[in-house]
């Protein structure tokens, strides 16, 4: 296998664990973040799987980065188990607090540029969205800031190492239209947000055995994840304080509203089943509808 031909970056997020028994709520019904367990976000985990695929198939060098408080180190450790990353990067500074997606993208862009000893990354993976944010903007905005070709909703991909290109399948779902799978080719570098339906396609016995070996190595490496970790503050990332945190965030949360219940597009009538006369009405209705 060819070694270290590709530099693959993954940006991930520490998110609340919404599974039953792990969530705490304040008395007003809002999330109690301090009491709620945090985990590597499920979409970030899929991005790590994609990086792992690059490692097994193409001998890629993997670096994972995240912006967050010091406890986000635990997400990096979990990401290492999935991706067998050689580098773990935590971008942590009080000045990053209150960041919206754009300010986050600014931090991540500088973070990605510092990976691989300052060498350029060939592919950057991120999750489709975060389970506690849902806007799905950080990925595309980071891609834009990096100046990379952006490929969203990617469900499968192969790399052509000789031509330095990626062939990716994207799943496009638009309201009122059939879901289509688009196959596109792009020269590297690219920024890929990976679809939650992505599954690594190891299709020979040898590939599976290699994946097993790397998986085992990853678990071993993660036991001493601290020695792979680099922590960057705003200064180390050479960030302009005006571009990050609250000052760098143009988004203003004006008001939070509950999602209105969608209007039912079907009409329903409640019929008492104990009365046989009512059932006759049901038959009548069905006959009427079936006649068109």
């Amino acid at each position: 296998m060819k070694q270290d031909l590709l530099n693959v970056a993954v940006i991930i997020k520490l998110e609340p664990d919404f599974s039953e028994g792990n969530v705490s709520y304040n008395s007003d019904g809002t999330l109690n973040r301090a009491e709620t367990k945090n985990i590597l976000g499920p979409h970030s985990a899929v991005a790590c799987n994609a990086a792992f695929y690059c490692k097994v198939r193409y001998g890629a060098h993997v670096s994972v980065g995240t912006m967050g408080p010091p406890i986000a180190e635990s997400a990096l450790k979990q990401a290492q188990i999935l991706s067998d990353a050689e580098e773990l990067n935590l971008y942590s500074d009080r000045m990053f607090a209150g960041a919206d997606t754009l300010a986050t993208a600014e931090v991540l862009k500088n973070g990605v540029e510092k990976m691989f000893g300052g060498n350029k990354s060939d592919i950057v993976f991120s999750g489709h969205r975060a389970s506690d944010g849902e806007t799905g903007q950080t990925g595309p905005q980071t891609a834009w800031k990096l100046g990379y070709t952006f490929l969203g909703n990617v469900i499968d991909f192969e790399i052509d190492l000789d031509r330095k290109a990626v062939v990716a399948k994207r799943m496009i779902s638009l309201q009122g239209m059939d879901t289509i799978i688009e196959e596109i080719e792009s020269p590297l570098p690219v920024f890929i947000t990976i679809d939650p339906s992505y599954k690594s396609n190891f299709n020979t016995v040898s590939q599976r055995l290699t994946a097993n070996n790397f998986g085992k190595e990853a678990r071993k490496h993660s036991e001493s994840s601290g020695q792979y970790l680099k922590v960057y503050d705003g200064k180390k990332l050479e960030l302009d304080p005006r571009m990050v945190g609250l000052p760098g965030s143009p988004t203003i949360v004006y008001k939070v509203e509950k999602i209105p219940r969608a209007k039912a597009n079907r009409k329903a009538e409640i019929v008492d089943p104990s009365n046989p006369d009512n059932l006759a009405q049901v038959t009548e209705k069905i006959t009427e509808i079936s006649r068109g």
Binding site: G21, N22, V23, Y25
Partner: peptide
Amino acid sequence: KEDQLKIHLGVSKLLK
């Protein structure tokens, strides 16, 4: 339903 959910989630954590 909202209160039921709050109790459900509160109880789940304590029960665990």
